[in-house]
Simulated assay, not measured.
Amino acid sequence: MTDLNFPAKESRLQWAEFFAGGGMARAGLGDNWKCVLANDFDHIKVKCYAENWGSDDLIPGDIRTVPSTIVPDSLDLAWASTPCQNFSSAGKGEGLLGAASSVFTAWWEIIQKKYVAGTHPKIIVLENVRGLLKSRNGQDFRTVAESFGSSGYHFGVVVVDAIHFLPQSRPRIFLVAIRDDIEIPASLVSDNTVQVWHPDDLVSAIQKLPEIIRQRHVWWRLPTPPAMALTLSDILEHDAAVWHTPEQTQKLLDAMSLINISKVKNVARSNSLVVGTLFRRMRPHEGRMRSFTEIRLDGVAGCLRASDGGSSRQMLIFIEGEAIRTRHMTARESARLMGLSDDYSLPTAKTHAAKVIGDGVAIPVVRFLADSLLTPLALVGNYSALKLS
C-alpha cells in the first residue's frame, strides 16, 4: 500500500461517532483520527464511554434531540453503528419500522441537513447486522441505499466477519459512502466481486436495487484477510472462573439434542482438554418450541449479543475425558473477543457489561477498514484517482 501522509496531531482527521456505545469504533480508528462528537442515548453505554474516553465531546441523549447545528461541518467521517435489534435474527423482523432501528431516519435527517447546506461529511460508515440486507424483503436495504444515493454520495458495502481477526463469529455489513465531489482512488475499487467481502446475499441485494441507485454503487477493494492467530483458549480468564455446579452442568447436557451430545462424546474420547461454547436456543420440537443446549467446538465463540438482545448469555464448556465443566463467559473474556484491551473499563454489573460489549463493533475490524479503505479515502489527495461519474 502507498505510504500515507497523516496530518499532524493537532490537525488529525476529524470524525463523529453516532450510536457510540462504549466507543469501540473510536478504539479501532486510533490516534490518527480525532473524535469531535459522540452520541448515545443509553445511560449505561454513556457512562462507560465517559469512563474510557472522557466526556468533553460526548452528547448524551436520543438522536432525535441532537440538532444538526452542533455536528461539526464537513467532517472527514461520520460513523453510525445504528441499532440492530429489528434486523437481527433474535428480533421480530420489524426492520426500519421497529422502535429501535427506526432511529436511522432521525440520524439521516442530520446528514441530509448538512447535505442541503453543502457541509455533509466526506465519508460515512453505517455498520449493522447482515439481516439488514434481507429485512422486509429487501425494502429496508433499498431505503438505506436510496438515502445515501440521493444525498450526494457514492457507496459500497462489504461484509466483514470478526472471525478473520478474533475467535468470534461476528459477520457485519459496513456501508461505506464517499461524497460525490471526492475522487475515488482506482486502487480502492474492484472490477469484480471478491467472495469473502461480497458474499452472495450482498451481491443479490445490490442487484435488486433500482438502476439509478446501482449507478452510485462501488465495489470496494479490500486486501486478503489475515490469518487469525488467536483461539478461544487464548482469551480465557482462568483465575476469574465461577463454575456451574455439577447439577447445572448436567442440566445443560440433558437439554442437548442427540447430535450435540454425540459431539461431546466424540471429544471426550481424546482425553485432552477441549474448550467449546454453549448456547441456549428455542427450537421446534414435537409441535412446540423447546429450549435446547447447542455446542460449538471449533475454537471459535458464537456472536456475542447484548443482554437484552433476545438471546441467552454465551457459556463455556471444558471437556477433558469424562470430566466436563461449564460456566458463563466472564465480562473480560467477552471484551477480549471484541478486541478490547484489559485496561478498558467495563461496567461492574454483568448485564451492563454484556450490553456494552454485545452491542459493540469488533475493534480489529474497524482498524482493518481504517487502514485499508477509510484513511486512504480521507487522504485521497495522496493518490492518483479515478473519477466516478
Rank of each mutant, 00 (worst) to 15 (best):
V267S: 06
A349C: 14
V267E: 03
S102Y: 02
L236T: 05
L374P: 08
P199I: 08
V366F: 11
K263T: 05
A362L: 07
S341Y: 01
I184L: 09
D191S: 13
N128L: 13
S272V: 12
K265L: 12
A20E: 04
C303K: 01
H217I: 01
G93A: 10
A80N: 02
F174V: 06
T65E: 14
D161N: 10
S311D: 11
L340N: 09
F148T: 04
V275C: 08
R313M: 02
A8V: 12
S151G: 04
S345N: 14
T119P: 13
Q14D: 01
R336C: 02
N52I: 06
P167D: 02
Y344N: 12
L373S: 14
V366G: 11
S307C: 10
I184W: 04
A27V: 13
D254K: 11
G118S: 05
T348K: 14
P72I: 08
S270M: 03
H352A: 15
F148W: 06
K263S: 10
V380L: 02
G131E: 07
I173G: 03
G149C: 05
K114D: 01
A162C: 05
E17L: 05
V66T: 13
M338S: 05
H154E: 00
S55M: 07
V176R: 14
D140T: 03
G22Q: 06
R313N: 01
V194T: 12
S68A: 15
A186N: 10
D31I: 14
Q195V: 09
L77S: 08
S272A: 07
I163H: 00
A20Y: 06
T193K: 14
G138R: 06
N86W: 00
V275Y: 04
E17V: 09
W243Q: 08
K263Y: 14
S190T: 09
N260T: 03
R269L: 15
K47N: 14
A240D: 12
I59E: 11
